[in-house]
Amino acid sequence: MRRVEQVMGTAVSLHLADPLPQPHLARLADEVFAWLHEVDRRFSTYKEDSEVNRVHRGELDPAAGSADLRKVLDACAELWRTTDGYFDAYATGRLDPSGYVKGWSVQVASDRLVAAGAGNHCLNAGGDVRVRGRPAAGEEWRVGIRHPWEALAVCWVISGTDLAVATSGTYERGYHVIDPYRGEPATVLRSVTVVGPDLGLADAYATAALAMGRAGLDWLAALDGYESGVVTEDGEAYRSPGLPVAR
């Protein structure tokens, strides 16, 4: 069962590969998209009444917020520390945890699918991907990493049965990632992909490395448990030795 919906300002593609009855699969898909719409309502900076905007305006004390809100804000604070300040939910001058929320929400949705007995699936939210299990017996999920200049080509193919794959890049929405130390857009790296167990972290690490510029290459190389592939604005490609590139 496959479904595509517009959520969070992007398109989300879901592929459920388990041989479950169609109504059951449809219900699981409904639940996935209901959750993602709920996250959008609660965490979007574009929705006037979102929890994030209420915190931003001082109307909501984070400590009194929902468990999810606290979880997200705690994760962002922890990421600020582990990325030497380069993942900064305040980089744009206001609270904006979007760099973590999308990956986190997809990870939660994928975890729920596993718990519901649908352990073979692929969920892709605007380029942030969580795959689990297999698309078919004996096959692995093959995730292409978009070529940063060729919209219809890929520059690596990653394969596996349990992967979070997040990419931050400047080629879709321009130089939108701010280096929080300079207060200016990061322009040195064109595309950063991080692969590992958790999509929220992978997404945030990719954004942080993009913000770091060339120093992000060494920072990524030292990451524990997360592999990476980077393309610079100059067209140089780098990857960690453990990146699960398909043969």
Binding site: H15, N124, G127, A153, I158, S191, A221, E236
Partner: peptide, 28 residues
């Protein structure tokens, strides 16, 4: 310290199930 290894930027049209990339807008 450990490094990322440099390689030639590839351009492939391989068989894939999905694509990871920078977030596109709904229009894009």
């Amino acid at each position: 310290m450990p490094h990322l290894q440099q390689e030639t930027l590839a351009k492939q049209n391989a068989k894939i199930a999905t694509v990871s990339g920078a977030t596109y807008t709904s229009d894009a």
